[in-house]
Design a binder for these strands. Structure first.
Lengths: 366, 366
DNA sequence: TTGAAAGCGTTACCAG
DNA sequence: CTGGTAACGCTTTCAA
């Protein structure tokens, strides 16, 4: 019917619906190709100019200016994924660490991020939540994403799953924790000396019954800190018994539990050495619940500082690592390798630590 | 000479050095193509099987198993950069925030990281170091890297450089700080109510001379917290004068300076409301230097908690945000958009906060 | 049930 | 001084 009436009036025009893409022209993404077309040049010329290789290829200054100007006007930006594929280089590095919400690691991350940025690199971060499975997963993911290198702070005490990294094609640098049998460069703190100094500090203040609250048993940082602990004791001719070491994790729960236990068991002690700050916080909780005062009843030194420790009822004496610097150093070493500025698997850097005496260590008279 | 002697003994064989790559065959990367060749199949078949589209394309079960088995044996892993280019989807999201080493943001980051991981996404993190220039740079970088979406915690009080994000093709969700005139979804805390509750807490304890230590003036979180402050005062029929608000940054320096100033000027006050924890720490430093005790001489409430506040000489009463949840919520909203599960620019979520009374607020008798 | 071939946006080799 | 063309490793039509 409608058609009939239309046919009856041949003058009337029937609008022919255009295919949708004609209405909404599929807004071609602004690529090198369209840029080149608009300029009447080839993509490679445009590419060269935009990458500052104009001189190198003796491109006419006028052409160069035209390209630059037009690219600016059109707001062209290169697709870094395409570039990454082509160049087999993504300009991204991976950072794998156990817990971003732990201030120590957060500061390491900040250090890594800053240096990465200075080197025009992007940072792909994976939080492994203290799980070795997630760590493996993260490592695989970042490999598949073709990152140019990796800063890794491994969790746990197994290095089995890491050995292949040593022979991999992309450089890896460990930070904080590492493994002696692993052929990878690392940067960490001088933990032996740090623990030794801390323990000596206690000993010099007359403490003889010291208990060390440790973290993960086989973690190298833990092993080293224990060694420093023993060394100091030895200097004072004290033999280090099993009873003087307790705890099983770098978290506050472990610190809390361990402290509760030694309290229940009535083990004699006048001082605690805590191997990181969450442990110390846990210990303090246990002590305060038991009505035990720091430093009057028990002295305490801990690794790693805590924001605002100076305002604690008993400001803690701490052994501070340069957390930020650890990150900076690690990623600097990584870039050395990425850019083939040397660096081998035996490059091991240990940053110095600082003992900051506050008010948590009592001078015993004896 | 050497040549002459060589010519003299024609029997002697002169080893012709092979080009290096003949010695070390350029170990072809294990790609779909070589995998397919090894199997005597086409790349697309292999691709389909490996992407679990075997059923969909009715690929013979036997073929499928052969592919799977062989891929496993050869340890094939896909190049995600290539896939990203092809699919125009990188499975990466960007996270832009002012300072990773600030525990609040670190926890937000942790929240984002966890949810991103659950969704099989990688996180590209940029620390803007509280600089608007770095923020712009980060935004551009992540755009060029073709991230599928962005969680942004903007710095500063200008939103000029962010408006274009609203009309961009990739979704963006703001977290913590946002701008009223910016058409972007956000998740933040119920700051007005939080500040109101905190101020009321002080008022109920008899405080009438309260000074608010603020952060960045025009930051929305700051504006809202001030509004809550004023609301509470109004309830008590107190007019809020300029003298009751001071400070100019969300950092400890600002808190320290501001507190020193009001002390020097002898402005009367019995309580401080600090708008974040670094500010509070700065204020405490100033107070302690002046020999002023909390809560005896001055009461203090601060936004955001501090690790171990409970062990402070005067454990601080705090207004706590669910920092981790902020991150989780933001990135959840982001994924809704990335996956086209709806979500519009007007989706604004404000998470509730908690007031935790400790010992830093004195009950005044009057 | 499988394959050929195009194409994502770059860069780089080799010509001219 | 500039351009054609072939990759990079993958996915996806379309065809068989």
């Amino acid at each position: 019917m409608a058609i009939a009436s239309l046919l009856a009036s041949p003058i009337q025009q029937i609008p022919i619906p255009l295919p949708l893409e004609t209405f909404v022209p599929k807004q071609a993404r602004l690529t090198l190709k369209v840029l080149a077309a608009e300029l009447g040049l080839s993509t490679c010329t445009v590419s060269r100019v935009l990458n500052g290789k104009g001189q190198q290829h003796r491109i006419a200054e006028e052409t160069e200016n035209r390209v630059l100007e037009h690219a600016r006007k059109r707001g062209f930006t290169p697709n870094l994924v395409a570039r990454g594929l082509r160049m087999n280089k993504t300009n991204a590095i991976g950072l794998v660490l156990p817990d971003l919400s732990n201030p120590f690691f957060a500061k390491v991350a900040r250090g890594v991020a800053d240096v990465a940025h200075k080197n025009k690199y992007t940072l792909e971060v994976c939080d492994t939540q203290d799980s070795i499975d997630l760590e493996v997963e993260a490592l695989n993911l970042l490999r598949d994403r073709q990152v140019d290198g990796l800063v890794l702070c491994p969790v746990g005490n197994e290095s089995e799953h890491l050995h292949y990294l040593a022979s991999g094609s992309r450089p890896v640098v460990l930070v904080d924790r590492y493994f002696a049998d692993l052929k990878l460069p690392y940067v960490s703190s001088a933990n032996i000396e740090a623990a030794e100094a801390a323990t000596l500090h206690l000993l010099e203040h007359g403490h003889r019954d010291i208990i060390c609250l440790q973290g993960i048993h086989d973690a190298i940082t833990n092993v080293h800190r224990l060694e420093g602990f023993r060394r100091a004791l030895k200097t004072y001719k004290i033999s280090c018994t099993k009873k003087m070491i307790t705890g099983d994790g770098f978290n506050s729960e472990s610190g809390y539990r361990a402290t509760c236990e030694i309290l229940e068991q009535n083990r004699p002690f006048t001082a605690l050495l805590s191997l990181n700050s969450p442990i110390a916080l846990g210990a303090m909780k246990a002590l305060s619940e038991a009505g035990i005062k720091i430093p009057d009843d028990v002295s305490l030194i801990t690794f790693d500082t805590i924001e605002g420790v100076e305002f604690f009822a008993s400001p803690l004496t701490t052994v501070d690592q340069s957390s930020r610097k650890l990150g900076e150093q690690a990623v600097t070493m990584l870039f050395d390798r990425i850019n083939h500025r040397g660096g081998n698997a035996d490059e091991h850097i240990l940053l110095p630590t600082t003992l900051t005496p506050r008010k948590s260590v009592k001078q015993l008279l004896n």
